[in-house]
């Protein structure tokens, strides 16, 4: 699975959880917090991504990730690891 595909999964989940982002373009350098996600929304996006990518890891591992690019890189390593 490519990083672009993973980015599409993550942004898809983000838009499902925050429908107001539907017509907003999302840049990989942005953080979920920048895009208006609260801590519960952010956890839900990561958990839904885990489910859809069929990977599991403790949420603490993504706690320090700063932006979507970092999350995609992390998920990419998990999916292909």
């Amino acid at each position: 699975m490519t990083k672009s595909e993973i980015f599409a999964v993550v942004t898809g989940n983000l838009r499902e959880i925050l429908p107001e982002l539907e017509s907003v373009s999302i840049d990989p350098q942005q953080s979920m917090r920048d895009l208006g996600a609260n801590s519960v929304d952010r956890a839900d996006v990561v958990l839904q991504s885990m489910e859809r990518l069929n990977v599991t890891f403790p949420l603490i591992e993504v706690a320090k990730i700063e932006n979507l690019q970092g999350l995609v890189d992390f998920l990419h390593a998990k999916v292909n690891g």
Partner: peptide, 12 residues
């Protein structure tokens, strides 16, 4: 089948 990914929002 996958309790690990239950949404955090369920806790609310």
């Amino acid at each position: 089948d996958n309790f690990g990914v239950v949404p955090a929002s369920y806790a609310l």
